[in-house]
Design a protein around this nucleic acid. Structure first.
Length: 386
DNA sequence: TCCTCTAACACTTTTGAATCGC
DNA sequence: AGCGATTCAAAAGTGTTAGAGG
C-alpha cells in the first residue's frame, strides 16, 4: 500500500489484488481533502455534537477518488464504526475511560447522493459528505447515523462497483479509513480548545460571536417582552434534497486549515500512546489531549472480498426502506463485531514506525470467506440514507 | 453531588420557489 | 413559450447555557 500524506490531503491507495486485476482496474486511491483541518482537530481531540434530532459533522468528510474505471458505475458510501470498546468521560481537562462501551446502536450507512455514478464522475471532483447527520436517538427514523455519546468513532468510506444501489457487486468491495477522522461523540462540547477551533472554522457560529454574547442576549430577552416564539426547529423534518453534490468548503476555510496545519507541523511530536489502541491492550488511564498531538499517520485500507456465490439479495430490496435495524449486529455478537472493526486501527504504528509504509491484511477478512453470517457481523447496510 | 442530555436562543448561511428579462 | 438570472423568504444549522433527570 502506498502512503501519501501532505499538508492538506491524506491518501489511501488500495493494493492491487487478483480480484482487482480481474476488473482490469488500477489501485483505487481515496484522498481526504480537508486533511489539514482534520489533523488540526485531531491534534486536540476531535469532538462532534450529536443530538436527538441529528447534527451534521464538523469537520465534514470531503474525499476525492482516483483509480476507478471511467465508464464503470460505482456506489460510494460512508458509515461509522467504534474506535474502541470503551466509553469515556471528560474529567477536568482530559478524556478518561469510563467503562465498557454501550451496546452498538443500529449501524447505518450513508450513501453518497450521486450514487451510482461512473468512475469518471467520481473522479471529476471531490465528494462531500456534508449532509451526513449524527444522532444519539436509537429510534431515529430520519436515516441519521446513530452513535452513542461519549464514545469514539471514525468514518469508513466504501467504494463498490455497482450499476445500482440495489444491485451492488459485492464481490468487489473496498473500504478506506483515515485515522485523523476519529472523533468523540458528545452532546455538548467538553474540550474548550475544540470549541474555539470550531468557531474559528464554522460560519454558523458567527451569530453567537458577532451578535454579542449568548448569555447577554438571553438576559436582555428575559427583561423585555418575549419575542414571537418560532416553531421548535428540532421538530422540523429535514426537507433538504440531497440530489446535488454539496458545495465544497470555502477557500477561506481551506486557507485556515493550512494555517492550522502549519502551526501543527512546527510542533515536535511528543511521545506517548496513540489515541487508539489494540482492543487486546489495556485501556489507557486517560486520553489526555496532549497525547492526541500529531503523530505520523498510517492510513489503513481494507479490501473486502466476498464470495460471489453468497447471495445478498434480501438486503437489496431494503436499501431504501424506512424499515431499519434489519442488519444490526446480532445482539449476542456485539463484541465479535467490535473485534472485526478494530484491526483497521489497532496496528497503528508507534512513532518510530510511523514513516514506514504498511499494508495490513486483516484476519477478519478470512471470516468473510467462510459464511454470510460472519459478513453480517460487519454491518454496512443496516440502513442506507441519501 | 456529579454527570449527561435536552431545549431554547440569535444569528448566518443555504435552499428553492417566485419573479423578471431576454 | 422557454430558458437563465436574480431576488427573497423560509429552512437549516451553529455553539452556549440553564435546567431537568438519572
Amino acid at each position: 500500500m502506498q502512503h501519501f500524506s501532505d499538508s492538506q490531503k491524506s491518501t489511501v491507495t488500495m493494493p492491487r489484488s487478483p480480484a482487482a486485476d480481474s476488473y482490469q482496474q488500477g489501485p483505487i486511491r481515496v484522498t481526504l481533502e480537508n486533511s489539514g483541518l482534520w489533523k488540526s482537530f485531531h491534534s486536540i481531540g476531535t469532538e462532534m455534537i450529536i443530538t436527538k434530532h441529528g447534527r451534521r459533522m464538523f469537520p465534514h468528510c470531503n474525499v476525492s477518488i482516483t483509480g476507478l474505471q471511467p465508464f464503470a458505475n460505482y456506489v460510494v458510501m460512508m458509515d461509522m464504526v467504534p474506535v474502541e470498546s470503551f466509553k469515556y468521560k471528560w474529567k477536568k481537562d482530559q478524556w478518561e475511560v469510563a467503562g465498557k462501551a454501550e451496546p452498538q446502536p443500529p449501524c447505518r450507512t450513508f450513501m453518497h447522493p450521486d450514487s451510482p455514478a461512473t468512475g469518471s464522475h467520481w473522479m471529476k471532483q471531490s465528494l462531500s459528505f456534508l449532509k451526513v447527520k449524527l444522532t444519539n436517538n436509537t429510534l431515529d427514523q430520519h436515516g441519521h447515523i446513530i452513535l452513542h455519546s461519549m464514545h469514539r468513532y471514525y468514518p469508513r468510506f466504501h467504494v463498490v462497483q455497482a450499476d445500482s444501489p440495489y444491485i451492488v457487486r459485492w464481490s468487489h468491495f473496498q473500504t478506506f479509513t483515515f485515522p485523523e477522522t476519529a472523533f468523540t461523540a458528545v452532546t455538548a462540547y467538553q474540550n474548550p480548545k475544540i470549541t474555539k477551533l470550531k468557531i474559528d472554522h464554522n460560519p454558523f457560529a458567527k451569530g453567537f460571536r458577532e451578535g454579542g454574547t449568548h448569555s447577554h442576549s438571553k438576559r436582555c430577552r428575559s427583561n423585555g417582552s418575549p419575542p414571537a416564539k418560532r416553531p421548535a426547529k428540532d421538530l422540523r423534518i429535514s426537507s433538504s434534497t440531497p440530489t446535488d453534490l454539496q458545495r465544497l468548503p470555502s477557500s477561506s476555510q481551506t486557507e485556515e486549515a493550512k494555517t492550522d496545519l502549519a502551526s501543527d507541523s512546527q510542533r515536535s511530536p511528543k511521545t506517548g500512546h496513540y489515541s487508539t489502541w489494540a482492543p487486546e491492550q489495556e485501556p489507557p488511564e486517560s486520553l489526555h489531549a496532549e497525547n492526541l498531538e500529531m503523530q505520523e499517520y498510517d492510513y489503513s485500507c481494507e479490501e473486502q472480498m466476498v464470495p460471489v456465490s453468497v447471495s445478498y439479495q434480501p438486503y437489496r430490496s431494503e436499501l431504501r426502506s424506512l424499515e431499519y435495524g434489519s442488519f444490526l449486529y446480532p445482539s449476542s455478537n456485539v463484541d465479535a463485531a467490535h473485534a472485526h472493526v478494530q484491526p483497521a486501527l489497532h496496528t497503528l504504528p508507534s512513532a518510530e514506525h510511523g514513516a514506514q509504509q504498511h499494508t495490513y491484511h486483516h484476519p477478519h477478512h478470512q471470516h468473510h470467506h467462510v459464511a454470510a453470517a460472519d459478513w453480517s457481523q460487519y454491518p454496512l447496510f443496516s440502513y442506507s440514507c441519501w
